[in-house]
Design a protein around this nucleic acid. Structure first.
Length: 158
DNA sequence: GCCAACGTTGGC
DNA sequence: GCCAACGTTGGC
């Protein structure tokens, strides 16, 4: 049994790239979390995530940013194939196959929810210190405290 | 499209 | 190692 790290995560996706509907439509409702090019976010996937950890699926860079689904980490870390794809927007010429720079995990969507919007999240004092809401935060993957996870699930059901 | 905030790069 | 310049994120 490994040392307990965070058990819950919020993961941002641009719906024009991969929406919660796209993920649900994928085989086993599972998608590889491609395109992360930030070391801190990569380290979360590579070092801290465990299969079965809870995931809040978040839509960003869109008309109504917010939490739109619940999922779970569905694989261990492995190299992001897009870093070696010359045609990909995420191609990284500095990364070599024998020493891949970017790692990802698979994420399985368990259910789509209503859109718990960013303004709604901000309006809730109990969520004031949710990492993703903090000023200046741009990380596409952030840990979620258990108390925040429970609260958000409750909000999603009402 | 604007811009605040942060990350990365590279010259020194 | 410092830090200015540049690039990116992401809400608005």
């Amino acid at each position: 049994m490994s040392t307990a790290g965070p058990q819950f995560w919020l993961m941002k996706s641009e719906p024009q790239e991969v929406s919660v509907d796209d993920a649900l439509a994928a085989p086993k409702s599972t998608v590889p979390w491609t395109g992360v090019r930030n070391y801190q976010a990569r380290n979360f996937m590579r070092d801290a995530m465990r299969v079965g950890n809870g995931v809040l699926f978040y839509h960003s860079s869109c008309a109504e940013p917010g939490i739109v689904g619940i999922g779970e980490v569905a694989s261990g870390p492995y190299p992001d194939p897009t870093q070696f794809d010359r045609k990909s927007h995420y191609h990284d010429p500095a990364s070599k196959p024998e020493a891949p720079r970017w790692q990802l995990v698979d994420v399985k969507v368990l259910r789509k929810t209503r859109n718990l919007t960013l303004p709604e999240l901000r309006a809730d004092p109990a969520l004031a210190d949710l990492v993703v809401l903090k000023k200046g935060n741009r990380l596409s993957i952030t840990p979620v405290e258990p108390r925040h996870w429970r609260l958000i699930l409750k909000r999603l059901d009402t």
